[in-house]
Simulated scan of single mutants.
Amino acid sequence: MLDLDTRIAVAGAGSIGCYVGGCLALAGRDVAFLARPANERSLRAHGLRVTDLEGRDRVLEGADLSVSADPARAFHDAGLILVTVKSGASEEMARLIAAYAPKDAVVLSLQNGVDNAERIRAVARRPALSGMVPFNVVRDQPADAPLHLHRATEGAVLVEEGVEGLADLLSVEGCAVAARADMKAVLWGKLLFNLNNALVALSGLPLAEELRDRRWRLILADQIAEALGAMNRAGIRPAAAAGPLKPDWLPAALRLPDWLFGLLARRMLAIDPAARSSMWDDLERRRPTEIDALQGAVLRLAVQVGTDAPRTAGVVRLVREAEQAQRGSPGLTPDVFR
């Protein structure tokens, strides 16, 4: 059982980790951040600014933050560890958890993808729960000013049931949290929406602008249709985890004319104009993307059940080319998919 005094370690001081951890610290929770050395120095020197779509604007001074690049220190006495690193770093973080975290600490994955909790369990040799973050966080790191994390879309974080007090501990102002029993369905449902991350990255467009363009939505609809076909053969029933529409309706809704889609998807389009995707940010920062955890998961499932996913494979190829080019977003147009 977890209570409000439980020490929380945020394992990965990136956009999601700093936003969620910042909201928790502002609510008076006992939070420690595990950060890379450069991020540790920045947070200590300048602090953390947390804003959101609803208009909140709050600052944590560096002196008020517990942040360390040393996992032994960051994990000390932790009762809950939030894993917020990129999916490709799951095993690396699991090894640190196995080596330095208390044996009875609860581990919760708040990462993109569908299998991170399983991968963490296999390496850390301890239970790990799944979580789903539905919102987009925009990161800005100005010189000599607090690291700025802005939640640019809405939605409640969903966490796997099984640990009493988990949702109550994590649900704070600016970051609502609820427990769900069907997390496998939730994660696959979120994956469908995350297939758009690559299109934002390839186009370089803000998320709202990209979604309002039917030419890009047609490409997203094709990917989702391929994913749903593979999921259906595998017996996976995705939940409506990150939007009001049922997953099976998404391809048809995305293919609607722009004016009709705008009427139907008002909530989906209630997005800060600055919002893009974490994959766009990865390309801009010349870092590996999470394409293998997103489109890659669909391709692996398609192979497993014997279906084709050519549109998804084409998106993967273009993202790989952009990663190798090391020039940021390539700024492609939808015509490239013809």
Rank of each mutant, 00 (worst) to 15 (best):
L4S: 10
R7C: 12
R7K: 15
V10A: 07
A11C: 15
A13L: 11
G14S: 11
G17K: 08
G17W: 00
C18Y: 01
Y19R: 13
A35Q: 07
E40H: 06
R44D: 06
R44T: 06
G47N: 01
L48F: 13
R49M: 08
L53S: 04
R56L: 14
D57R: 08
V59H: 05
A63M: 11
A72K: 15
A78D: 04
G79K: 06
L82Y: 03
L82D: 02
L82P: 00
K86S: 07
S87P: 08
A89M: 15
A101F: 02
P102K: 06
K103F: 12
D104V: 08
D104L: 12
A105R: 02
A105C: 04
D115K: 14
E118P: 03
I120G: 01
I120R: 00
A122H: 15
A128D: 00
N136M: 07
H148P: 05
H150R: 09
R151H: 07
T153S: 03
E154S: 15
E154D: 12
E154I: 00
G155P: 05
G155L: 03
L158K: 10
G162Q: 12
G162P: 09
G165R: 12
L166Q: 06
D168I: 08
S171Q: 11
E173W: 05
C175N: 11
A179D: 06
M183K: 09
W188L: 06
W188H: 08
G189Y: 02
L191C: 08
L192V: 01
N197Y: 04
L199S: 07
L205M: 13
L207E: 01
L211I: 09
W216G: 04
E226G: 07
L228E: 03
L228D: 05
M231G: 03
N232R: 11
A234D: 12
G235R: 12
L245G: 01
P251T: 02
L254Q: 00
D258L: 09
G262F: 01
L269S: 12
W280R: 14
D281Q: 13
L283H: 07
R285E: 15
T289Q: 14
E290H: 10
V298E: 00
L299F: 01
A302V: 10
G306E: 10
D308C: 01
V315R: 06
V315T: 13
E321C: 03
Q324H: 11
Q324N: 15
S329P: 09
T333F: 02
P334V: 05
F337T: 13
